[in-house]
Write a protein that binds this DNA or RNA. Structure first.
Lengths: 249, 249
DNA sequence: TAAAAATTTGCGGATTTTTGCAGGATATTC
DNA sequence: GAATATCCTGCAAAAATCCGCAAATTTTTA
């Protein structure tokens, strides 16, 4: 990776997340911490970012007040995103839902990854499309306005033609007895199709939503292969899911 | 291998991959690194690429974040959008392309309008989806990264199943002899399908792009029903199009 | 057609840039 | 206040660049 290219990537990440950790960048770009440090220093001298102990901040961030967090539970979602990204390998065919957690995952993808992402979510697809080396396919149909998500029989039919290696769904409710549930009928139909079309199902959620319930069931607990939250896998509130045979990350 | 030929190859590689490594080029073209270096230097002076330590980057790499950047010729595009919106009536089935002019049109739609919009452009669909009373359908397929536009045979097949009342295309070049032209092969294929699937074709463009030419033809002058620019219809530079039988707004 | 001129190319060597590493200094955390 | 993480400094190896020059090639000219 060229130096300028690397610096452009760092800048992109800073503008996206408002902050970057030096260790994260080392991990993603696969270079020594000294190199990243020097990059941050150069970019800071150009005023493109603000260098702080352990990483850097976006120059716009230091002005704005901390009160208005851009995304609800942003910190938790970043942790979830990082765990999720570690499951994606080169050459994989990935089905993906929508939501802020998924978008955070898309932003966290390592730049050299070469995978194919398929999604019905317009914001998620826009985010995947910024990735330099991966391919993106959008499933078309009528667009559900609140969720910016394609829904309908055409979309479901297209998804059924697919068999993906892995499927990531951001979920709004999960309960040990009632499984995953949601409140938008059309979207649930599409999610169900996705679950049928994948070899491995990964559910992402902040711990707050664990043991909550909504009107429409998406899938059973047994359908989940991997569950990712911001908590460590040995957290007590996750143990029922571990015992149900789910791999908790 | 001739010098020009070599430079054309380098340029092709840069535009394809957004970057080239000097060592890769030496290896492929079988010439000394100094020769390649001199080529890159020349091309950089012509602004065709950006030379960096170890190789070169596409000029598009350098341009900063588009999101905050104001839209080029915003005032003109607002005028065009207003004229275009007047053509859309309740109950209409509307095919739409992408681009900043189309997005401006989507923002200008009167809130009480009830129409159905179909598009391949992710940004345009996101914009239409904000409208309170209209329906939006997105055409799915592989997403072209630069243009955030679905392209491919699936998209074209879906469009061919449609017969829309009206189709709005933002165009990049128009010439009285060569018609409408563009520079992205995949996107042009989709636009052609749209033109075939509509009863009425409306082309939107700022006057600056009139009488300009690009490599790939989208359609003939005769295919256009209505042409909209920011100029009044009696402007001299539009008269050739009026005389060609196009309704100029 | 052959010589002259201009351009292009490759090479050796000096110089600069980039990167990673080792160490000691400084900051952060519990 | 000790343990850990982060930062800075100098250094050295590797890679890339720059420079001048001569050989090779192409173009122009006589």
């Amino acid at each position: 990776m060229l130096k300028k290219e690397r610096q452009a990537y760092i800048l992109h990440q800073v503008n996206l997340h408002n902050k970057v950790l030096l260790t994260d960048l080392c991990e993603h770009i696969k270079v020594s911490d000294d190199t990243i440090r020097r990059d941050l220093q150069e970019l800071a001298e150009e005023g493109k970012l603000i260098k702080v102990h352990g990483g850097a901040l976006s120059p716009s961030f230091h002005k704005t007040d901390h009160s208005s967090e851009p995304v609800y539970s942003y910190t938790q979602k970043r942790i979830i995103a990082q765990k999720a990204v570690s499951l994606i390998k080169n050459g994989m065919f990935v089905l993906s839902g929508g939501g802020t957690t998924i978008i955070e995952m898309a932003r966290t993808l390592p730049p050299q990854l070469k995978a194919t992402f398929v999604s019905c979510s317009l914001p998620a697809v826009q985010e995947y499309a910024n990735h330099p080396n991966s391919e993106v396919i959008i499933i078309g149909d009528k667009v559900s306005k609140n969720s910016k998500f394609s829904v309908g029989s055409e979309a479901i039919a297209k998804i059924k033609q697919i068999k993906s290696d892995i499927c990531f769904l951001g979920i709004n409710s999960i309960d040990i007895n009632h499984g995953v549930s949601d409140n938008d009928w059309d979207v649930v139909q599409v999610k169900k199709a996705m679950i049928e079309s994948t070899r491995k199902l990964v559910c992402l959620t902040i711990a707050e939503k664990i043991n909550s319930l909504q009107p429409i069931q998406v899938c059973d607990i047994n359908d989940i292969d991997i569950l990712i939250t911001e908590l460590p896998p040995d957290d007590p509130c996750l143990q029922p899911y571990v015992q149900a045979g789910i791999h908790v990350l």
